[in-house]
Simulated assay, not measured.
Amino acid sequence: MKKIAILGLIAAGAISLMAADGAALYKKCAGCHGAKGEKKALGKSVAIGGWDKAKTVEALKGYKEGKRNIYGMGALMKGQVVSYSDEDIQAVAEYIEKLK
């Protein structure tokens, strides 16, 4: 029984290590959007810091699918998020929502 409990703890730890880290994912966004999402990316976009999670998820999925091209940034943003999984998008959206 102890072995099963230990294996369960190890599995839970491995899953939490694999969970998407919004702060880490946002680091590649910060170059254009600023550390707190306070910048207009390349002088074109609006500041994204504090955006509602659902709004960010919708925007990132739109860019990933190639269906969004706000401020002519569609291709650039698609390149930034194409490797993001749905879990990554959720995590970075949660992180952005907390930025102020």
Rank of each mutant, 00 (worst) to 15 (best):
M1G: 13
M1W: 01
M1V: 02
K2W: 05
I4C: 05
A5P: 05
A5S: 07
I6M: 09
I6W: 02
L7F: 02
G8H: 01
I10P: 09
A11M: 03
A11S: 04
A12Y: 00
A12C: 09
A12H: 00
A12L: 15
A14G: 13
I15Q: 01
S16G: 00
S16N: 07
L17H: 11
M18T: 02
M18F: 14
A19G: 11
A19F: 07
A19H: 04
D21P: 01
D21I: 03
G22Q: 00
A23E: 15
A24K: 15
L25F: 03
Y26N: 02
Y26S: 02
K28F: 01
K28I: 08
K28W: 02
C29T: 00
A30W: 03
A30D: 09
A30S: 15
G31C: 10
G31D: 11
C32V: 11
H33V: 05
A35R: 07
A35G: 13
K36G: 13
K36H: 08
G37Y: 07
G37N: 12
E38Y: 06
E38T: 01
K39C: 03
K39P: 01
K39H: 14
K39M: 11
A41Y: 06
A41L: 04
L42K: 13
S45D: 12
S45Q: 07
V46T: 15
V46K: 13
V46E: 14
V46M: 14
I48A: 03
I48Q: 06
I48W: 10
W51Q: 13
W51C: 05
D52C: 04
K53Y: 05
A54F: 01
E58V: 10
E58Q: 13
E58T: 14
A59V: 04
L60G: 05
Y63H: 02
Y63R: 03
Y63A: 05
Y63N: 09
K64Q: 13
E65C: 08
G66W: 03
K67M: 06
R68E: 11
N69S: 13
M73R: 09
G74F: 08
A75L: 10
A75C: 06
L76V: 11
L76P: 11
L76F: 12
L76S: 10
M77Y: 10
M77E: 10
M77S: 05
K78D: 00
G79W: 14
G79P: 04
Q80N: 11
V81T: 12
V81M: 07
S83Y: 10
Y84L: 15
S85N: 12
S85P: 11
S85T: 15
D86R: 12
I89V: 14
E94V: 10
E94G: 10
E94M: 12
E94R: 06
E94H: 03
Y95S: 08
I96D: 07
I96N: 07
E97P: 03
E97Q: 14
K100Y: 00
